[in-house]
Amino acid sequence: MESGRSRLIEATRSMLTEQPGRVPSTRELYEAAGVAAPTLYHHFGDKDGLLQAVAEEAFAEYLERKRTVPRTGDLLADFAAGWDMHVGFGVENPALYALMYGRAGHRRSRVARTAEAELRRGLERLADAGLLRMDVDEAVALTTAMAIGCVTRLLYDGGSATGPLAETMCTALMSELTGHAQELGPADHAAALLLARLGSTPGLFTTAEEALLRQWLRTLIEHVTPAQDAREQGAER
């Protein structure tokens, strides 16, 4: 038999999904769950505690889904895939997403902190590969703000998680984080891939050799594309 706690969580999720943008009253919640008020107070303390529990459950589902996203070894592509997953989850679960990143989510539950820690680790991998051009704290804040803003706008417009707006915002974020967009030219894409994978085979280079190679690859990423663009523009004249 389903416990009173489970029934309250399920009823709250259902009501939030059926009436997005509206938070039901305490009475509506325990009546929808078919329990008495003391059951809600016993398990959650108050309505905010119940909403927090629903947010925690949503974050747990989010993490489970995020961990199924395959890693390719290409740090830039993997980060972009994480963005796609986040936006897709938000668009598919608008009520839960609003709860996760709204008032209830501000209590910083354990699973919410875990979700942010996983984002931080992804950004730290970019930083360790020499691909991040700001500090990790700033990158976490920027990525979170742009992701929430993107999902919020898509929900407002009824847009698609794979549509032009989501793709444009992902490209803008990658450009701001790394200095170049996700869509790279052949030369700088190859350089970025090699830079991202340096260190994956311990002992291949000495510390000094790896540092020098990193410096050369960063120079290629920063300068090859502008030079190619200039040549292409000259050819068009």
Rank of each mutant, 00 (worst) to 15 (best):
E92D: 05
V111W: 00
H180K: 10
V91I: 15
H189S: 03
A77E: 07
E31A: 15
Y41M: 03
R125H: 05
G102A: 02
E18M: 11
C170I: 02
P186Q: 08
L123P: 01
D157R: 14
L63F: 12
F79N: 12
A32K: 12
D229S: 11
E56S: 12
C170F: 00
R22I: 06
A32S: 12
L131I: 13
A32W: 07
H223E: 10
V136F: 06
R197M: 11
L154S: 02
E18W: 05
R13D: 10
D135Q: 11
A81C: 09
L29A: 13
W83L: 08
E31C: 11
L217M: 04
C150G: 10
P94N: 04
V91R: 00
L195V: 05
A161D: 02
A127P: 02
Y41V: 06
L184Y: 07
R231C: 13
R231F: 14
G149S: 06
T12C: 00
Y156P: 00
L16W: 02
V136R: 01
E222T: 04
M1H: 03
V35G: 02
L119N: 13
A115I: 06
D84F: 01
R110D: 05
A192R: 03
T171L: 10
S3F: 08
T114D: 04
E183W: 12
A37C: 13
A145E: 04
Y62I: 02
A172E: 05
M85R: 09
D46E: 04
T144P: 02
D135A: 07
Q182R: 15
A115F: 15
V224Y: 06
L75T: 14
R237E: 08
L16F: 03
E167T: 09
G21T: 08
S6Y: 15
M85T: 15
L154K: 00
L204A: 09
D135Y: 03
S25A: 08
L220H: 04
E232C: 01
F44H: 11
L165G: 09
R5T: 01
G149Y: 01
G179S: 06
G158L: 13
F205E: 15
A60G: 13
L177K: 13
R103M: 14
V111T: 11
R120D: 00
R7G: 04
S14P: 08
L177S: 07
L40N: 03
